[in-house]
Write a protein that binds this DNA or RNA. Structure first.
Length: 431
RNA sequence: GGAGCGGUGGCAGAGCGGACGAAUGCACCGGUCUUGAAAACCGACGACCUGUCACAGGGUCCGGGGGUUCGAAUCCCCCCCGCUCCGCCA
């Protein structure tokens, strides 16, 4: 959610930023009009209420002096004003609701340094490690074939048990998946508190991080209990401090969590249906930070570097791209994706998305902090925190890239060195 | 799921129709004292909306939502959450 004050004070600047997304900005004009109307109603209503309060106190005093008829007059006057206040209140509530609904649907403003562009085709590559042409024929086998041959990926039975776009890992494949989670957690445990959050969250929580109300179709709903399955651990982690006022000394806060992620993939039916490329349920380790606006830029760098470093230790070919204005998610202020190259299916797979949300999510979740007192401001006002997060590692696609990259001529798969401590002694899958 | 009790400021904890944004203690902040610190003392000290160049001023908030009343933290109704006991249970 954008800051209504920012919109009010310079609507053209907000519109200019949103225009970079290639969207219609007329909602901003509507917001400005509603906001003016709302403030008008508030001012009038408050004046009426102030008078009611004065009159009510008078009643008490007049009763004390025994002037019953004067008290009666004040009561009558106050009663009439009460009806007026109620009407103004109702009007204000209605306008405020309309304003909020509009505000919830307006995407975040874009960071000045984010590149311009229309679609994902315009996302610039900022770093590239490895050579996509440097693979042998035995590595040019899709992971779903290798996985089936080695008995570590069983999509047929997953489909039988649940339905299409669900996967099941077996044996060393399941262990490999869990090893990746463990690796990602261990590599970030130096600075991040490990959380095991709930996987089902309330509507308020899913709204706070930006998924609702606009993207309800993408989430699994547990309607009977009015709960939602999380599409990422970002959702519960963001809301850890919802409604709280943090001490500046506590910032930046850093959390990491392994969680299952549930996505209906409503807009992606029929895309990437093979193997582990896209599933309704998958595992991911997320890293997240609540920071001051001043700390945020460095934190964005840190998160990108941490995600990159984990991919790098796995020995995969990868690249980092920056998301252009037209491809940026609704809540995002600035984002970077890490993609690994999967030689078997010859595709770049997005395995991490690191984003800075500025105060967009914090305003929805109402997460504030109190800046440290200084000489000229001994009691500073509260400010919204900034939220940032990124996938430390999205398991299935990394799993796929490993199975393809590390496939040997005999069809077995060598386990990357850094994963071996978590593999119960398995060094070559299928050997 | 059933029964009982409870939800008040950062924390603890009074108040139970009018002078209550709310006693008191602790914490926090500023100051006095001190070589420095502690202690002591003095003062300040919630959030949000509105308003102002900035002050001032006005309003809302005592778990959430309705209601009664001239007036609600206080009375009534519904909901949510917590604790204790019972039931169920990995």
């Amino acid at each position: 959610m954008l800051d209504i004050r920012a919109i009010r004070s310079d609507p053209e600047a907000v519109k200019a930023s949103l225009a970079r997304r290639g969207i219609d900005t007329s909602d901003i004009d509507a917001v400005v009009a509603l906001d003016a109307r709302r403030r008008d109603l508030v001012t009038t209503r408050d004046a009426v209420r102030a008078e009611i309060k004065t009159l009510s106190k008078q009643v008490g005093r007049l009763r004390g002096t025994g002037d019953e008829s004067a008290a009666e007059a004040s009561m009558a006057r106050s009663r009439a004003l009460g009806a007026e206040a109620d009407a103004l209140e109702a009007a204000e509530t209605a306008v405020a609701a309309e304003l909020d609904a509009l505000l919830l649907g307006i995407p975040n403003v874009i960071h000045a340094d984010a590149p311009d562009g229309i679609s994902d085709a315009d996302n610039p590559v900022v770093e590239m490690v490895g050579d996509i042409d440097g693979f042998a024929d035995h590595q040019r086998v899709p992971h779903w074939e290798t996985g089936a041959a080695l008995g570590i990926l069983d999509t047929e039975r997953a489909t039988k048990i649940t339905g299409s776009m669900f996967v099941m890992l077996r044996g060393a494949g399941a262990t490999l998946s869990r090893a990746l989670c463990q690796l990602a957690l261990d590599r970030n445990a130096d600075a991040f508190e490990e959380i095991r959050p709930p996987s089902l969250v309330s509507t308020a929580t899913l709204t706070a991080s930006g998924q609702l109300p606009k993207f309800a179709d993408d989430a699994y709903a547990v309607e009977r209990d009015d709960l939602w399955c999380i599409p990422t651990a970002e959702v519960p982690l963001t809301s850890i401090a919802a409604g709280e006022i943090l001490d500046s000394a506590e910032l930046p806060m850093r959390f990491m969590a392994y969680s299952p992620c549930y996505r209906r993939e409503a807009g992606a039916a029929g895309r990437d249906t093979r193997g582990m490329l896209r599933a309704h349920e998958f595992d991911k380790v997320e890293i997240l930070s609540l920071a001051t606006p001043e700390q945020a830029p460095a934190m964005l760098d840190e998160l990108v570097h941490r995600a990159e470093a984990t991919i790098a230790t796995l020995g995969l070919t990868y690249r980092i791209i920056e998301i252009c204005s037209g491809d940026l998610g609704q809540s995002h202020h600035r984002s970077f994706d890490i993609e690994v190259y999967a030689p078997g299916c010859d595709m770049w797979l997005e395995v991490s998305s690191v984003s800075w949300f500025s105060d967009y999510q914090a305003r929805r979740a109402n997460i504030r902090y109190r800046p440290a007192p200084s000489a000229d401001d001994p009691r500073p006002a509260t400010r919204m925190v900034h939220t940032l997060n990124g996938s430390a590692l999205a398991v299935p696609r990394v799993w796929a890239a490993i199975v393809e990259t590390y496939r040997n001529p005999d069809g077995t798969v060598t386990v990357p060195e850094v994963l071996r401590p978590y593999m119960r002694g398995i060094t070559v899958i299928g050997a």
